[in-house]
Simulated assay, not measured.
Amino acid sequence: MPPAETKHLRTLSIAIVPDSFKGSAGAGTVAQAMARGARTAARAAGREVAISTLPFADGGEGTLDAILDAWDIPARSVATTDALGRDVAARYGLSPDGSTAVIEAAEANGLPAVSDVPLRPLHATTFGIGALVNAALDAGATEIVLCIGGSATTDGGTGLLSALGARFLDRDGHELPPGGGSLRDLASIDVSALDRRALGVSWKIACDVTNPLVGERGAAAVFGPQKGARTAEIDVLDAGLRRLAVVIGEATGRQLGEVPGMGAAGGLAACLAGFCEVELVPGWELVAQILDAREILGTADLVLTGEGRLDSQSLHGKVVNGVRLASRPEADVIVIAGSIQLGPDELAQAGILAAYSISPGPATLEELSGQAEGLIESTSYSVVRTYLANGQPG
Rank of each mutant, 00 (worst) to 15 (best):
E5F: 14
K7R: 13
T11E: 12
L12K: 01
I14Q: 05
V17E: 09
D19M: 02
K22R: 09
T29W: 00
T29G: 10
A35T: 01
A44Q: 12
S52K: 03
G60R: 03
G60Y: 06
E61R: 05
L64Y: 01
I67T: 04
I67R: 01
L68G: 05
A70M: 01
W71A: 03
I73G: 00
P74L: 05
S77E: 15
A79R: 15
T81W: 07
D82N: 14
R86E: 10
G93Q: 04
G98C: 09
S99M: 12
T100G: 01
V102A: 07
P112Y: 04
S115N: 09
V117K: 13
L119C: 09
R120I: 00
A124H: 01
I129W: 00
A136E: 02
A141C: 13
V145W: 01
L146W: 06
G150V: 11
S151W: 00
A152E: 05
A152C: 12
D155H: 08
A163R: 05
A163G: 14
L164H: 03
D172K: 10
H174F: 07
L176F: 06
G180C: 08
A187G: 06
I189M: 04
D195S: 11
V201C: 07
S202P: 00
K204W: 01
A206I: 04
A206H: 06
T210K: 13
L213C: 07
V214I: 15
G215T: 08
A219F: 05
V222P: 02
G228R: 09
I234N: 04
D238R: 10
G240A: 12
R243C: 12
L244A: 03
A245E: 03
V247S: 05
G257C: 03
G257Y: 02
E258L: 13
G261N: 07
G267F: 02
L268C: 13
A269Q: 05
C276N: 09
E277D: 15
E277A: 13
G283A: 08
E285Q: 14
I290P: 00
E295C: 11
L297K: 03
G298Q: 07
R309I: 03
G317E: 10
V319C: 10
V319A: 07
R324V: 14
R324T: 12
P329I: 15
A331V: 07
D332F: 06
V333C: 12
V335D: 03
I336F: 02
S339P: 07
I340L: 15
P344K: 04
L347A: 11
L347T: 09
L347S: 10
Q349T: 13
Q349I: 04
G351N: 10
I352M: 06
L353C: 08
A363T: 03
G370L: 06
Q371A: 15
E373A: 13
L375N: 08
E377C: 13
T386R: 15
N390L: 15
N390Q: 14
G391Y: 08
